[in-house]
């Protein structure tokens, strides 16, 4: 049924391909030019004109070389920074922690032994256990004590004259040690908050951040094996805004949503939970 000859001459073939190629190039070209003219010129210039934006700025915004959109003026802000913590996690800080000196941290930690225990595990439950805490969490808190972002009658003094390097060394030393192992308790209320949270009150599962998952801010502390009293004190301090060095109020927001009974239960739950 084939009506066309099978063998064209090479010249005929080339001519046929050329026609095809021209047609295709034309079709693709027309579409591209129309899209470019409309998207980068007509739309932004007309939109910009209506809000008093000059044509050049409108085109630059459409391309993305100037901030803002062609349909509105950019707002301005006169605010000055009043951060709740001076710590930011850049490659420099992360590098300092990665290169922290555990041996030097061990020496520096002698000062801490009185309250936090010779093994980094304290006997007085109002002082937190340090061993097994993440280096990032320790670094952040020591830095905040030093800068005044977090206040404590003892720690504010102890941290004052520590250098960044000393803080990093202490952090990696305690992070390198074993956390305390406890038994476990059955508490469905606490377990539910820890594992599922409560979307009805915008409370995320505590474990979403505190169990080492991706999806947690860098400074998120490990809670497992911490003293119940210490955990409860901190939750209450966040709820009453007497502690507010949590960046963007992450813990202040959650703790105000918790009842005092839930805080008790959660503190007990994490104090007793075995490490996975």
């Amino acid at each position: 049924m084939a009506t066309e000859p099978l063998d064209l001459t090479p010249e005929q073939r080339a001519a046929e391909d050329r026609t095809f190629r021209r047609g295709a190039a034309l079709a693709v070209g027309v579409v591209l030019v129309a899209g470019i003219v409309l998207g980068f010129v007509v739309l932004p210039v007309v939109q910009g004109a209506s809000v008093g934006l000059d044509a050049w700025s409108a085109i630059c915004r459409a391309i993305g070389v100037q901030p803002g959109t062609p349909i509105a003026r950019q707002p301005s802000s006169e605010a000055a920074a009043t951060p709740v913590s001076q710590v930011s996690w850049g490659p420099a800080t992360l590098g300092a922690l990665r290169n922290g000196n555990v041996a030097r941290g061990a020496q520096l930690s002698r000062v801490c032994d009185a309250c936090h225990g010779a093994q980094g595990l304290s006997s007085d439950p109002q002082f937190p256990n340090m061993s097994g805490q993440t280096a990032y969490a320790i670094y952040k808190q020591l830095h905040d004590f030093r800068s005044g972002a977090r206040k404590n009658y003892l720690m504010s003094i102890v941290a004052t004259y520590r250098s960044d390097q000393s803080i990093a060394d202490l952090a990696v030393y305690y992070a390198s040690r074993q956390a305390l192992q406890h038994g476990s308790i059955e508490d469905p209320v606490a377990a539910n908050l820890a594992v599922r949270g409560d979307p009805a009150r915008s409370i995320a599962a505590c474990n979403a951040c505190h169990l080492g998952n991706p999806g947690a801010p860098v400074e998120t502390p490990n809670l497992i094996g911490q003293h119940k009293e210490y955990l409860l004190n901190q939750l209450q301090a966040f709820a009453h805004d007497t502690r507010h060095n949590d960046v963007y109020a992450r813990m202040r927001t959650i703790s105000t949503a918790l009842t005092s009974d839930e805080m008790e239960r959660l503190a007990a739950y994490y104090a007793a939970t075995p490490r996975p």
Binding site: P67, G68, S77, A79, A80, A81, S88
Partner: peptide
């Protein structure tokens, strides 16, 4: 297309708490 450093966002002027 307005850039801002997420690492230091909380230290920034505009997005300070």
């Amino acid at each position: 297309v307005e850039r801002i450093d997420p690492k230091t966002l909380q230290l920034s002027d505009e997005f300070t708490e």
